[in-house]
Amino acid sequence: MATGGRRGAAAAPLLVAVAALLLGAAGHLYPGEVCPGMDIRNNLTRLHELENCSVIEGHLQILLMFKTRPEDFRDLSFPKLIMITDYLLLFRVYGLESLKDLFPNLTVIRGSRLFFNYALVIFEMVHLKELGLYNLMNITRGSVRIEKNNELCYLATIDWSRILDSVEDNYIVLNKDDNEECGDICPGTAKGKTNCPATVINGQFVERCWTHSHCQKVCPTICKSHGCTAEGLCCHSECLGNCSQPDDPTKCVACRNFYLDGRCVETCPPPYYHFQDWRCVNFSFCQDLHHKCKNSRRQGCHQYVIHNNKCIPECPSGYTMNSSNLLCTPCLGPCPKVCHLLEGEKTIDSVTSAQELRGCTVINGSLIINIRGGNNLAAELEANLGLIEEISGYLKIRRSYALVSLSFFRKLRLIRGETLEIGNYSFYALDNQNLRQLWDWSKHNLTITQGKLFFHYNPKLCLSEIHKMEEVSGTKGRQERNDIALKTNGDQASCENELLKFSYIRTSFDKI
């Protein structure tokens, strides 16, 4: 039985969820670079991206490699990797027998973001014989899940209580170790020597080791999670996991709180800001991140802002960003909400898709409305799209047979046209069989910064309504002859009103 693990408890099935942008060198404390989270699957090609990484700022997932063999891993080693800020997950990587050479110096898994409450997941690794993470000293947050690894031993010899604050939620089941077939031998045991430290858990006094050649490092209890030197002297209180010299914040392997210019500090002093819960960055760093993602459509890219001495992905609820200094300031009234469309555009074809934009005031991208039916549609669209004030790209209304009016965009005031449909149009209306009105132009103002209007096959939309939009939106004169079809717009509506004058002759039985 794995020490510190839980057996036999019912657990939810383990679901495996399925960018080499360097964020800056980590400095003297770390020998390499800070790398983003990685999802490495199918083959070993991307694994080489770990070569210079000291910190993975995010998670590391290595999974679904069915053609790899043990010899493929023999020359692979990433000794610079010290810390993973989120979680480490391995799933069905064939041929991998140990992690001792792959990650010989991995010391800390912070667990800032977890995989279903777990910071370390080893699942269905069919050839893994031992973990071998002999320098792993601290899992700051989260638990361990090690399950269905039929060859995995050296679990009962690990004292997880020396690595985690609590072992109650560890789930370590259905491994070879369960069948008591392992016969784990710690260093020196074969020669009758006791080389590794022994600890007591559940009444068992057991030597602690990761492999037959690597003991588990056990520091004096007084050192807590700070770690200790090879001689057993406690590291500085700002260290986490390990250090090369005692009581020196510049000799830590990793930091308990924050890293700044080669030393570990309790908090980031001005003019620095907390970033990702582990390091200090200056304003320029946060500003660069903001600008890199301002026009990016890459998933996970955030326009970072500053709030409460932190550089964070977005302002919290009730705050909006001051564009001059990136500071989050309290909103006066309802907060603006910028919604970034991942692929640059979004099609609204149902109430469900409209709900995804609920509360958005600025759309960074283009909207395509293609709704053919739905219950209580006008009210639903207004509830979900009615706060949109600005669209950076274009607005396209296409084959939306259920629409009679666009009044559900009740606050839309600006279409920038930074991206144009077919390279020309910022407003595009095609084949809307029941569209009769755009907006009530006596109450609604709309500016279209650039781009043209396109109207074709809107049989109940009168040309007068379209011409009014040209005047109000500032697009009059931009359109070419064929942009607004004269014969297919309003051709099934009563669009022309003329005053009919009647004269009559009164007659009676005795007068003409």
Results as ranks from 00 to 15, higher is better:
residue 255 C to F: 00
residue 263 R to H: 07
residue 99 L to K: 01
residue 139 I to E: 00
residue 83 M to N: 00
residue 170 N to V: 13
residue 44 L to G: 07
residue 216 Q to M: 08
residue 177 D to F: 09
residue 110 R to T: 10
residue 131 L to S: 01
residue 280 C to W: 00
residue 318 G to R: 02
residue 198 A to T: 07
residue 236 H to F: 06
residue 284 S to W: 07
residue 168 E to M: 13
residue 164 L to V: 15
residue 108 V to T: 12
residue 82 I to Y: 14
residue 131 L to G: 01
residue 97 E to D: 05
residue 96 L to A: 01
residue 94 Y to D: 00
residue 323 S to C: 08
residue 335 C to G: 02
residue 185 I to A: 07
residue 329 T to C: 09
residue 149 N to M: 00
residue 226 H to G: 12
residue 285 F to L: 08
residue 255 C to I: 00
residue 119 A to E: 00
residue 256 R to N: 15
residue 82 I to D: 00
residue 273 Y to R: 06
residue 139 I to F: 01
residue 99 L to Y: 01
residue 332 L to Y: 04
residue 205 F to L: 12
residue 55 V to D: 02
residue 276 Q to Y: 09
residue 209 C to L: 01
residue 119 A to V: 02
residue 75 D to I: 04
residue 177 D to T: 04
residue 72 D to R: 05
residue 285 F to T: 08
residue 88 L to A: 01
residue 155 L to Q: 04
residue 57 E to Y: 02
residue 167 V to R: 05
residue 267 T to E: 13
residue 222 I to A: 14
residue 164 L to W: 01
residue 304 Y to F: 14
residue 140 T to Q: 07
residue 217 K to I: 14
residue 256 R to Y: 14
residue 56 I to S: 06
residue 106 L to C: 02
residue 200 V to A: 09
residue 317 S to I: 01
residue 110 R to A: 14
residue 133 L to I: 08
residue 327 L to S: 08
residue 198 A to I: 13
residue 110 R to L: 13
residue 238 E to C: 09
residue 118 Y to N: 01
residue 75 D to P: 07
residue 199 T to G: 10
residue 52 N to A: 10
residue 259 Y to I: 08
residue 78 F to M: 02
residue 267 T to S: 07
residue 199 T to A: 09
residue 308 N to E: 13
residue 165 D to V: 09
residue 311 C to V: 14
residue 275 F to G: 01
residue 262 G to H: 08
residue 287 Q to S: 15
residue 318 G to S: 09
residue 241 G to N: 01
residue 316 P to V: 06
residue 316 P to F: 04
residue 275 F to I: 01
residue 44 L to S: 10
residue 87 Y to R: 00
residue 122 I to P: 06
residue 126 V to A: 01
residue 83 M to H: 07
residue 34 V to S: 04
residue 251 K to N: 11
residue 311 C to Q: 01
residue 304 Y to K: 04
residue 323 S to L: 09
residue 205 F to G: 08
residue 243 C to T: 00
residue 199 T to V: 12
residue 128 L to T: 03
residue 319 Y to L: 08
residue 135 N to D: 03
residue 303 Q to T: 15
residue 218 V to I: 14
residue 234 C to T: 00
residue 87 Y to Q: 04
residue 121 V to Q: 00
residue 328 C to H: 00
residue 83 M to F: 05
residue 224 K to I: 09
residue 321 M to E: 10
residue 302 H to R: 10
residue 281 V to I: 07
residue 239 C to T: 01
residue 90 L to G: 01
residue 56 I to P: 01
residue 46 R to I: 01
residue 157 T to V: 08
residue 249 P to R: 05
residue 145 R to C: 03
residue 151 E to G: 07
residue 58 G to C: 02
residue 226 H to Y: 11
residue 167 V to H: 12
residue 200 V to C: 14
residue 35 C to S: 00
residue 270 P to A: 14
residue 204 Q to A: 13
residue 108 V to C: 08
residue 119 A to H: 00
residue 196 C to G: 09
residue 100 K to C: 10
residue 73 F to G: 02
residue 248 D to L: 06
residue 275 F to A: 02
residue 51 E to L: 07
residue 158 I to P: 05
residue 137 M to K: 05
residue 213 S to L: 10
residue 216 Q to N: 00
residue 117 N to V: 01
residue 52 N to G: 11
residue 95 G to W: 06
residue 200 V to M: 10
residue 334 P to G: 08
residue 130 E to G: 06
residue 210 W to R: 02
residue 232 G to A: 08
residue 278 W to H: 06
residue 187 P to G: 05
residue 127 H to T: 15
residue 319 Y to Q: 14
residue 210 W to G: 03
residue 284 S to G: 09
residue 45 T to Q: 13
residue 51 E to H: 02
residue 216 Q to L: 05
residue 217 K to S: 07
residue 247 D to V: 12
residue 30 Y to D: 08
residue 202 N to C: 06
residue 200 V to G: 04
residue 69 R to C: 09
residue 283 F to G: 10
residue 145 R to K: 07
residue 173 V to E: 11
residue 96 L to T: 02
residue 50 L to E: 01
residue 37 G to L: 00
residue 253 V to Q: 02
residue 300 G to I: 14
residue 237 S to C: 12
residue 115 F to N: 01
residue 124 E to P: 00
residue 138 N to L: 04
residue 284 S to T: 06
residue 271 P to S: 12
residue 108 V to S: 05
residue 333 G to Y: 15
residue 178 D to V: 09
residue 273 Y to I: 06
residue 97 E to V: 14
residue 105 N to Y: 08
residue 335 C to S: 03
residue 174 L to I: 08
residue 256 R to H: 08
residue 136 L to S: 03
residue 294 K to N: 08
residue 74 R to Y: 07
residue 78 F to A: 06
residue 217 K to V: 11
residue 222 I to F: 02
residue 224 K to V: 07
residue 241 G to I: 02
residue 304 Y to N: 06
residue 271 P to L: 09
residue 44 L to F: 09
residue 238 E to R: 07
residue 213 S to Y: 13
residue 113 R to I: 09
residue 60 L to R: 00
residue 111 G to V: 00
residue 258 F to L: 09
residue 229 T to K: 04
residue 185 I to D: 05
residue 299 Q to R: 15
residue 147 E to A: 01
residue 289 L to Y: 08
residue 36 P to Y: 13
residue 64 L to V: 03
residue 136 L to G: 00
residue 213 S to F: 14
residue 199 T to M: 06
residue 131 L to N: 05
residue 234 C to R: 01
residue 54 S to N: 15
residue 192 G to W: 07
residue 249 P to K: 04
residue 278 W to V: 05
residue 107 T to F: 05
residue 59 H to Q: 05
residue 228 C to W: 01
residue 145 R to S: 03
residue 234 C to P: 01
residue 212 H to G: 09
residue 324 S to F: 04
residue 331 C to N: 04
residue 179 N to H: 09
residue 71 E to S: 14
residue 217 K to P: 05
residue 114 L to N: 01
residue 125 M to K: 00
residue 153 C to L: 01
residue 331 C to G: 05
residue 28 H to I: 06
residue 168 E to S: 15
residue 227 G to L: 01
residue 156 A to D: 06
residue 278 W to M: 00
residue 124 E to R: 01
residue 123 F to D: 00
residue 252 C to P: 03
residue 35 C to R: 02
residue 135 N to R: 10
residue 149 N to S: 06
residue 109 I to A: 00
residue 324 S to D: 11
residue 244 S to H: 08
residue 289 L to C: 09
residue 92 R to V: 02
residue 298 R to P: 10
residue 167 V to A: 13
residue 39 D to Q: 00
residue 298 R to N: 07
residue 239 C to V: 04
residue 165 D to K: 15
